[in-house]
């Protein structure tokens, strides 16, 4: 058992090392990055294209009209995800109440 614990621990350390090494392959934080410029449509796709789109168009009245961009993304652009997240909470509550229901029929509600 001790041996197995040692193997598991060293495996976790190795995984952490690999993931940490992966951080250096990411683009630098906070700087626009032009290594990923791919021709798409009439222009070049950047890694930040989606973010730029949200920031620029999200506030405009014809798109969402919300000055809080987080709310615009949450309820307009990714509203379906928000419905899913709300459902996750609903599921958790339904599951928890199912675990705390009364056990037999006819028991008094406590």
């Amino acid at each position: 058992m001790i041996k197995r614990r040692a193997i598991g621990l060293s495996a976790i350390l190795l995984i952490f090392g690999l993931l940490f090494a992966g951080v250096f392959l990411l683009h630098p934080y906070g700087e626009p990055d032009y290594t990923l410029a791919i021709k798409q449509g009439d222009s070049f796709y950047q890694r930040t294209a989606t973010d730029d789109y949200f920031i620029e168009r999200g506030k405009m009245a014809e798109e969402s009209g919300s000055t809080n961009i987080v709310a615009a993304i949450l309820f307009d652009y990714r509203g379906y995800d928000t419905l899913g997240e709300a459902t996750v909470l609903f599921t958790a509550v339904a599951g928890a109440t199912a675990m705390f229901r009364r056990e037999r029929k006819g028991d008094e509600d406590e």
Binding site: R4, I7, A11, I15
Partner: peptide, 17 residues
């Protein structure tokens, strides 16, 4: 169970990465 998750993840990471 967790032990096998970690081991499989490590093996796959080493092989695939």
């Amino acid at each position: 169970y967790i032990f096998w998750i970690v081991i499989l993840l490590l093996i796959l990471m080493l092989l695939i990465a």
